[in-house]
Simulated assay, not measured.
Amino acid sequence: MDINDLRGISTAFLLFAFIGLVFWAYSSKQKQEFDEAANLPFADDDVPQDGKQEGIEQ
């Protein structure tokens, strides 16, 4: 086994890992979790525009 065999095996392993990651990311089981993560930037929309929150005195 020389370095070229090792390179071929590592390339094949990385190809299968990439294909597995793509199938995992696009699987329907992950849709709800990814939708929740996509809405995280909008989670603080309850704060009024003036920057003051209820119950906090400044």
Rank of each mutant, 00 (worst) to 15 (best):
E36W: 00
A12K: 08
A17S: 05
I19H: 04
F23A: 13
R7K: 15
R7L: 13
Q49F: 10
L15W: 07
L40P: 02
D5Y: 07
R7D: 15
Q49S: 15
Q32S: 12
L40M: 14
F16I: 09
I3Y: 11
A25W: 11
L15D: 10
F42Y: 06
K31D: 12
P48V: 03
Y26T: 11
F13A: 10
V22E: 13
I9K: 14
Q58C: 14
V47K: 06
K31N: 12
Q53L: 14
G55L: 02
Q30H: 10
S27N: 11
K52S: 13
A17D: 04
P48K: 07
F16K: 07
P41K: 01
D2N: 06
G8F: 08
L6W: 05
D5G: 05
A37H: 03
W24F: 15
F23N: 09
A25G: 13
F16R: 07
Q32T: 12
D5S: 07
N39Q: 02
D44T: 01
L14N: 14
R7P: 02
Q53I: 09
V47A: 08
G51V: 01
I3F: 10
E57P: 01
Q58I: 11
D44H: 00
F18E: 11
I56Y: 04
F16V: 09
Q32D: 14
I19T: 06
I19E: 06
I3D: 13
A12E: 11
F34Q: 15
Q30A: 15
E54V: 03
I19Y: 06
F18Y: 12
L15C: 11
